[in-house]
């Protein structure tokens, strides 16, 4: 019984050996077993033919395959998801400043110069405070916009809605930048560590 069990283990090892996957220490044990097992010796002689036969069944890849793959690559989606420059964030910020200036202007106040800048900064601060989180800011902004429909002009309401939306877009982009360091950088570091 014990012999059969061992024999089956050695049989499995023979296949591993033929495939280059048998550890050195096991190889020595296998050699010892082979001295006393004619069946395993026969099996061992046949295995190279089986492995050759299997690898002979490979097909050739079309010559132009790699070129076809490369010419059909779409613009990389990840490039847009993880921008490596601040251009987009800066553009969104510029639009927001424009929108907030417009809001201050539309409010009918008499602010000029430093006062206007302070008002714009206050607008940013109050939006950030009101949001206290991306989703909260959206819903709060929506609520405020709805309130404006009742008391303000439609133009003012639309501009305010755009403002809230813009702040959220800016937040999302900035958070994505800080949460996910550029992948290429990460891979570079990891590869150096493992190398």
């Amino acid at each position: 019984m014990q012999h059969d069990q061992d024999h089956n283990v050695y049989l499995e090892w023979l296949y591993l050996e033929a495939d280059g996957g048998l550890a050195g220490s096991d190889r020595a044990l296998l050699q010892r077993h082979l001295l006393s097992c004619a069946e395993c010796r026969r099996e061992r002689e046949q295995l190279p033919a089986l492995f050759d036969l299997l690898s002979s069944g490979r097909v050739e890849v079309r010559e132009d395959f790699a070129d076809r793959v490369m010419s059909s690559l779409p613009p990389a989606g990840w490039e847009a998801r993880h921008p490596r420059t601040w251009t987009a964030a800066a553009a969104v910020l510029a639009v927001l400043i424009g929108l907030s200036a417009l809001l201050v202007g539309l409010s009918g106040g008499e602010l000029e110069g430093v006062g206007a800048v302070v008002a714009i900064a206050e607008l940013f601060r109050s939006t950030i405070t009101a949001g206290s989180g991306l989703l909260a800011a959206s819903w709060h902004g929506l609520g405020m916009a709805i309130g404006e429909v009742v008391v303000g002009s439609p133009v003012q309401t639309g501009v305010f809605a755009l403002f809230v939306l813009g702040v959220n877009v800016l937040f999302v982009r900035l958070l994505m930048r800080s949460w996910r360091r550029p992948v290429a950088e990460r891979l570079g570091r990891d590869s150096k560590r493992s190398g």
Partner: peptide, 23 residues
């Protein structure tokens, strides 16, 4: 079909390249 699917696989992998986990 094997070639067509292999091409699709490479495209999928390329599109998700930033999600590759070097682990």
């Amino acid at each position: 079909e094997a070639h067509d699917l292999a091409q699709e696989v490479f495209l999928k992998v390329y599109q998700a390249l930033d999600r590759y986990n070097p682990k």
